[in-house]
Design a protein around this nucleic acid. Structure first.
Length: 417
DNA sequence: TCTGGGGTCCTAGGACCC
DNA sequence: TCTGGGGTCCTAGGACCC
C-alpha cells in the first residue's frame, strides 16, 4: 500500500471573510477584514456570542465564543455584523465545487473545512506542494477568499498543519516533522484537548504536545481512561481514519434547538416551540430517508441549569406528528416550571428506512401520517418552508419552523476526526 | 462575563436476566 | 431469604469539535 496523502483545507476566518466579500460586492465602502469587527448574533434575541473575528479584532484579544458584551468592552468601536447562513452555505458549496475538479475524495468536515484524499494519485499530481499552491491560489482568485492547506499522511496531522501560520499559507506536517513542528506547541492546541483536559494535563506537568507524546501512556489511561490513550496517540501523530466522501450517510443523531427571545414560562409556549423544532427534524429525517427510535428533550433554564430526558420508543418513525407527540410528552415529565431560555429536541438511534423492519414501523408510520408528511414536504420544497404550517402558530410571534434543513449535507464537527 | 447551535463519543449507575 | 457475579439495555451527564 502506498503512503497516504491527505490535504486539509481551512478557510481563513470563514464567516468574516465571506461576509466581507459579500458586503464589498454590495457596495459597502469598508472591508471589515481591515477593521476591528466580528460576526455575531443579536443580543436582543439572546444570541450574543462572537462567531468569527477579524485580525484587528484579534489584537484586542477578542475570542470566538465570547459574548458580544465582553467583546465590546475590549473594543469600543467594534463593528458587529450578523451571520448570513445562506451565504455561508453558498460559499462553502462553491469551494467544494472547485475542489471536486481535483478529486472526488472529499470529506466536508464543517462549513469551512474539508479533507481531500490524494493517495495513489501520483500519476496525476507529481508534487503535492505544487498542487496545494494551485488549489489555494485558484480559490483566492476565483472565489475571493483565502485558505490554509495542510498536507500530511493522515487527517489529524493535515489538520494541525493547516492551523500553523495564517492566512493564505500551505504547510506540511509529515511524521518525520512531528518532533520539530508539532511537539513544541502548547498541548491545548492538540485536537481533542479542550479546556478541562488541558487543566488536568497541566497538573501532571504536561505543557506541550511533546510532553504529552512522551508521557507514560499507561498513567494517562489510568487517569483519563480511553481518552488518555486517544490524545496520547494524537500527540504522536497516530491516527488513521478514512476520508469519508459523505457525512450525509451514516449520520447518528439529529437535533434542533433554539434560544428563545424571551423566557418560556408556560406549557403552551413550550409546546409551540417544541412543535416548530420537530417540524424541521421531521423534514430532515425524511430527506435523509431515516427513521429513529430514541428521542430526547433538553432545556436550559434562565440561570443556565440544564435538564435532559430521553426515551427509547417501541417503534421507529419519521413522522412529524410522532416526534411532536413524544417530545411534548417528555417535556411534560421533565419540566419543573422554571423559566426556560433554550430548548431542544434530539433524535438518535437512526436507521435507514429500508433497513427497519416493517412491523416496527407500522405502529408509528401509518399510511395516513406518511401521506400528510409527504404532502407538506412537497409544498414546502415547492413554495418555501413557511408556505404551510399548523394552525397553532397563527397570530403568534413564533416561527412555525425552526432551524435550517440545508445543513445536513455536512453535519457539523465532532470531537473525533 | 452573561453565555449559539449543530454534532460525536465516553462513562457511570440502575434495572433486569441468568 | 439473603446471597454472587456477569452481561446487556437504558438513561443521564459530561467532554470535545467547529
Amino acid at each position: 500500500m502506498s503512503k497516504r496523502l491527505i490535504f486539509h483545507i481551512d478557510v481563513n476566518s470563514a464567516y468574516l471573510s465571506w461576509t466581507a466579500a459579500y458586503l464589498l460586492d454590495k457596495g459597502y465602502q469598508v472591508d471589515i477584514r481591515n477593521i476591528p469587527s466580528v460576526i455575531g448574533g443579536n443580543e436582543e434575541a439572546r444570541h450574543g456570542i462572537v462567531l468569527a473575528k477579524s485580525d484587528p479584532a484579534k489584537n484586542y484579544k477578542i475570542q470566538t465564543g465570547e459574548t458580544l458584551f465582553s467583546a465590546r468592552i475590549k473594543c469600543k468601536n467594534l463593528v458587529i455584523v450578523p451571520p448570513h447562513y445562506d451565504l455561508f452555505k453558498r460559499c462553502s458549496d462553491f469551494m467544494v465545487e472547485l475542489l471536486n475538479e481535483y478529486t472526488p475524495n472529499i470529506q466536508r468536515f464543517s462549513c469551512d473545512e474539508c479533507f481531500l484524499d490524494f493517495t495513489s494519485m501520483e500519476n496525476l499530481y507529481k508534487n503535492p506542494l505544487d498542487l496545494a499552491y494551485e488549489i489555494k491560489d485558484r480559490i483566492e482568485k476565483e472565489l475571493g477568499f483565502t485558505v490554509n492547506i495542510g498536507i500530511s499522511s493522515n487527517k489529524l496531522l493535515a489538520k494541525i498543519a493547516s492551523d500553523f501560520n495564517k492566512p493564505n499559507k500551505v504547510h506540511t506536517l509529515f511524521p518525520e516533522e512531528i518532533e520539530l513542528k508539532m511537539w513544541p506547541l502548547d498541548v491545548g492546541e492538540l485536537f481533542g484537548v479542550g479546556k478541562k483536559t488541558l487543566k488536568k494535563l497541566n497538573t501532571y506537568g504536561i505543557k506541550t504536545i511533546g510532553d504529552l507524546a512522551n508521557f507514560d501512556v499507561d498513567i494517562l489511561k489510568y487517569k483519563l481512561n480511553s481518552y488518555g490513550e486517544q490524545i496520547w496517540k494524537y500527540a504522536n501523530g497516530i491516527e488513521n481514519s478514512q476520508v469519508r466522501k459523505s457525512n450525509y450517510i451514516g449520520i447518528k443523531s439529529m437535533g434542533n434547538s433554539t434560544t428563545t427571545h424571551f423566557d418560556i414560562t408556560t406549557k403552551r409556549e413550550a409546546s409551540m416551540v417544541i412543535s416548530s423544532l420537530c417540524e424541521t427534524i421531521g423534514m430532515r429525517l425524511r430527506k435523509n430517508k431515516s427513521c429513529f427510535n430514541v428521542i430526547s428533550i433538553h432545556y436550559k433554564t434562565d440561570s443556565f441549569f440544564s435538564r435532559r430526558k430521553q426515551k427509547k420508543l417501541s417503534y421507529f418513525t419519521d413522522s412529524t406528528q410522532d416526534i411532536k407527540k413524544e417530545a411534548i410528552k417528555l417535556f411534560g415529565e421533565l419540566w419543573e416550571e422554571e423559566p426556560i431560555r433554550q430548548i431542544g429536541v434530539h433524535v438518535t438511534g437512526l436507521f435507514n428506512n429500508n433497513e427497519v423492519q416493517l412491523s416496527l414501523l407500522e405502529e408509528g408510520n401509518t399510511e395516513k401520517k406518511k401521506n400528510l408528511d409527504k404532502t407538506i414536504d412537497n409544498i414546502r420544497n415547492k413554495y418555501g418552508k413557511y408556505s404551510i404550517s399548523t394552525a397553532q402558530f397563527i397570530d403568534t410571534p413564533m416561527p412555525p419552523l425552526c432551524g435550517g434543513i440545508n445543513e445536513d449535507d455536512y453535519p457539523m464537527m465532532s470531537s473525533l476526526i
